[in-house]
Nucleic acid binder design. Structure first.
Lengths: 200, 200
DNA sequence: GGCTTTTTAGCACGAACGTTCGTATTCTGT
DNA sequence: ACAGAATACGAACGTTCGTGCTAAAAAGCC
């Protein structure tokens, strides 16, 4: 890895942290350059445009999510254990990744949902990826016999997303310490409602 | 109502619309002045500072929410009917209010959750108000016998919030036409899980 | 160690930002 | 209709925005 890629990676690390606080659209080149300890134009040269920088930050954040939330959950057995791990990791991956703020993807989803363009597309693609990953885990849980055969996978994922979003709002806006317990409670209720009948 | 208050109200109407698209923090005085058809300084004089303008927009948006989502639901019978009305109104009040974008309060929640200050406080207070209103409706449903006596009201509200947020993300980011049906499905499952036992 | 390529800094640009001020216009009460 | 107050405007402020251009410094290669 040459010097260029090295500093680019360092920039992106600072960028993810800053974006978690001020959002991807609030991320300015000047502020980021200050934080990274380099000149505005020097940093700018790595991306060529602000939009390209935003896309790079989104990609980098997604990689972090995969590293801290997705990959660790693969160590669990397919089915309910893995789904539960996915959910708990998802709820606290920003802390694990030592981000000072919220998940950049989620913030960006709110900032760009009415701003057509490549950034919006990237955000949508990233979150769709997350939903697909969840859907897969749910499907595996059905196949493993941990959830009922007639489980509506997309509906199940929809409700998982809701739990996650409610937890983030409770935790970040209201500083509610019960956010995670509430989320886990909702998750367990969801699972209970989809438990296969006793007699196999 | 003097001329001053009149144009102030007109400004705020444009402001809510614009904020629903670009967010409360993305709302710039110049852009808003253009949209309102007046000069930057003339508009500015109505508020004295950008922060004061943001606070005014948040208050105005909250009033709109009360008008389009909360008040109409009061016509329904206390208990499950009113709660259901509250939920469905909440899911589509931005359309009823003819906003081109998302709920400004919800967007602002994501933008300001890491930006301490009066705006953050106002957003938190506004959304806390919404949760309180929901909690009240849930309590009334318990008292009316529509929900089980041992219902955990705060947990119930948490899950309602989750349903709402998931629906908004599905609808606004993914343009998923099934967002509302999914939300209603989740709501009914939540209600079913808290139904009082058959034998009174 | 010199040469080429890559990476960084410095400087300048036009535009937009929030804000101030003095002046013009428009309302309002009599 | 007129005086006084309320409201709106235009110009300018200092800053920051994203983005070029050019030159210096650093890194990589023979």
């Amino acid at each position: 890895m040459g010097k260029g890629e090295e500093t680019r990676q360092a920039i992106l690390e600072q960028a993810i942290a800053l974006a978690s606080e001020v959002g991807v659209s609030g991320l300015s080149i000047g502020a980021l350059a200050d934080k990274a300890g380099m000149s505005k134009s020097g940093l700018f040269a790595h991306f060529g445009s602000k939009e390209e920088m935003q896309l790079a930050v989104l990609r980098a954040a997604q990689e972090r999510f995969a590293e801290f939330a997705f990959k660790p959950a693969l160590k669990e057995r397919r089915g309910l254990p893995r789904l539960r791990a996915l959910m708990t990791n998802w709820l606290n991956w920003t802390e694990k990744a030592r981000l000072p703020g919220a998940c950049p993807l989620n913030s960006a989803a709110n900032e760009f949902d009415d701003q057509p363009g490549p950034v919006r597309d990237a955000v949508a693609a990233g979150l769709a990826d997350g939903r697909r990953m969840l859907a897969n885990a749910v499907r595996l849980a059905v196949e493993a016999g941990d959830l009922r055969e007639d489980t509506d996978v997309d509906q199940f994922v929809f409700e998982l997303v809701g739990i996650e979003l409610a937890a983030m709002q409770s935790q970040r806006l209201f500083r509610d310490k019960q956010a995670i317990p509430r989320a886990l409670g909702a998750f367990e209720r969801l699972v209970r409602d989809h438990q296969p009948s006793r007699k196999e």
